[in-house]
Amino acid sequence: MIENRPWLTFASHATLLIGIALVALPVWMALVASTHPASAFGVGHIPLWFGDAGAETWGTVLFEKAGNGVDTPVWFMMLNSLIMALGITFGKIAISLLSAYAIVFFRFPFRNLCFWIIFMTLMLPVEVRIVPTYEVVANLDLLNSYTGLTLPLIASATATFLFRQCFLSVPGELVEAARMDGAGPWRFFFDILLPLSRTNIAALFVILFIYGWNQYLWPLLITTDDAYYTLVMSIKRMLSVTDGDIAWNQIMATTLLAMLPPVAVVIGMQKLFVKGLVDSEK
């Protein structure tokens, strides 16, 4: 939009500032809260400026134990979350790339049927199939393992669909040119298709990483061993301490830490992400 009206500029900036305030205020309060001692919350008012217990809270939470009944330090749970999120992300991308490749570029019987079957799994997210999936994972002896955390979440109809659309937009002449240039299926995939889908992969990476990082129900269900606890599910556990004496400062610090990796991924890949969503080089 190219409009030059001062009041419009003012109004849009004001709207944006209000939006920023709405989003940032809770984060700010969490940050402030994490610097006050746990007792500061019982008195009835919410502090708006930093206290002096920050170093202590953060040190404990990060390196000793998250508190509120969770005895593993945050960095360790972060590592678990990261392994799970990256496992899910890369797994999903790899599987969807390959299945979309097969569906778009190879002629085999029931090709369309295969696609629609994959597509129908959209209606079966983990939450719907959680009991049978749990049983399968339990039977395979995968409870309390990284494989168990990631594998059942890897199949992705959305990503397959996205890559299918992306591949379908590759001009037929390009495929033929590669054939004339002696590129077999694998060469074509790695030399031509992957680079062409680069921005789509990046966009998907961001979305899937956040999806993986925010997984709650599934890790809650299949991990019973502290060694595999992920950060997001632990926050909920920290809230359910029995004696009612919740250490809010520790929870706030943990929450802030849980927000960091997704934020980092979004900021780091912002440029590619936007490019992948709005344009393509083809």
């Binding site: 002449e173 390009l174 033929e176 040119a177 031509i192 062409l196 080089e281």
Partner: peptide, 10 residues
């Protein structure tokens, strides 16, 4: 080819 079919990323 008619539309040249150059590899756009190369």
């Amino acid at each position: 080819f008619q539309n040249y079919a150059l590899y756009p990323h190369m």
